[in-house]
């Protein structure tokens, strides 16, 4: 596609998204907003697991860390909400740096185990410290826009997702992206060719933690009630499912996957927990038969298109 055409499509797509709240009910706009929240989580995890090959299982924890930090700070010290979210992001970066330092020298399986253990510890801590966090009762948070109506939050998350998406794209296209891809393909070869593998893995880890904390921080001040439930492994599994089904290590994969799975999940709400089984099966099928995910499928399809097209 030529640049003006690309731009044309982008403007059209942008207008369509901006117009969505006029065409749909509040309930639907809420679902779209939650989809965008997952888009941000998925983009961050794809950067770390897809591009850099580091399968962290604590991605959802950084979202929770962002949300709880802001909620607790705002509640106990009365700082403005945006300052609370900022503090959550900084804390996630610091914790991400520390956890990365501890875990990123490990082999893949130990990295997964260590990050999972970290995730469970943080969740249990929040559950047990109910005097401070109100545990399973849930912690009320003030609304960012003073209203629970979804439309302003939809626009907010649209902007955030766009910003995070562009940032991720910038990183992947830069030399850092090349370091990360090299590390994923062969870490030893990258190291002996001069790449400081540990440093760049940790950079990716911190960036993905920051993305997650941004998403979590803002989302906390939208849903208005935090609980340790979304810090369970289920939530991490959802992010993995979204990225894998959409297309691991592609730019649009996490975006398409997050929206697709979140919408499907809403559509099948009546099925309850059975949905997870369905999604797990979906992941198996994708991994076995279409490792490129939905994006891979679409690319193969469009590659065949020109043969049918009458002109060109």
């Amino acid at each position: 596609m030529t640049f003006p055409r690309r731009l044309g499509w982008a403007v059209l797509g942008g207008l369509a998204l901006v117009w969505l709240p006029w065409a749909f009910s509040e309930y639907h706009i809420h679902i779209f907003t939650i989809s965008l929240y997952y888009v941000i989580l998925a983009i961050g995890w794809n950067l770390l697991a897809g591009y850099a090959g580091q399968f962290s299982l604590a991605h959802h924890t950084f979202a929770g860390l962002g949300a709880y930090t802001s909620a607790l700070l705002v509640h106990h010290t009365g700082v403005p909400i945006l300052a609370g979210i900022g503090a959550g992001v900084v804390l996630a970066a610091v914790v991400g740096y520390g956890l990365g330092t501890l875990c990123l020298r490990m082999r893949a399986i130990y990295l997964a185990l260590a990050t999972w253990a970290f995730a469970e510890s943080v969740r249990l801590l929040i559950q047990v410290e109910y005097g401070f966090t109100r545990g399973d009762l849930g912690f009320r948070t003030p609304m960012l826009f003073g209203t629970p109506l979804p439309t302003p939050y939809f626009y907010l998350f649209l902007g955030l997702a766009l910003a995070v998406g562009l940032a991720a794209r910038q990183i992947v296209g830069s030399r850092i992206g090349t370091y990360l891809r090299a590390i994923r393909d062969d870490e030893e070869a990258a190291a002996v060719m001069g790449v400081d593998t540990f440093k760049w893995k940790r950079v990716a880890f911190v960036i993905s933690a920051v993305f997650a904390a941004i998403a979590g921080g803002f989302q906390g001040h939208y849903i208005g009630l935090l609980s340790p439930t979304p810090m369970k492994f289920n939530e991490m599994a959802m992010v993995i499912i979204m990225v894998v089904v959409g297309g691991l290590r592609t730019f649009p994969g996490p975006i398409i996957g997050a929206v697709f799975i979140e919408l499907l999940s809403e559509l099948l709400r009546a099925w309850g927990e059975i949905r997870m089984v369905l999604f797990a099966l979906l992941v198996l099928v994708v991994v076995r038969a279409y490792p490129g995910g939905l994006v891979g499928l679409a690319r193969t399809a469009t590659a065949r298109l020109p043969q049918w097209a009458p002109c060109k």
Partner: peptide, 20 residues
């Protein structure tokens, strides 16, 4: 080698690492 990169990209990795 870096299997999912092109041959040229593979060869450029040491030069990119030097930027760092």
């Amino acid at each position: 080698l870096f299997g999912n990169m092109t041959v040229l990209e593979n060869v450029l990795v040491p030069a990119l690492a030097a930027i760092d």
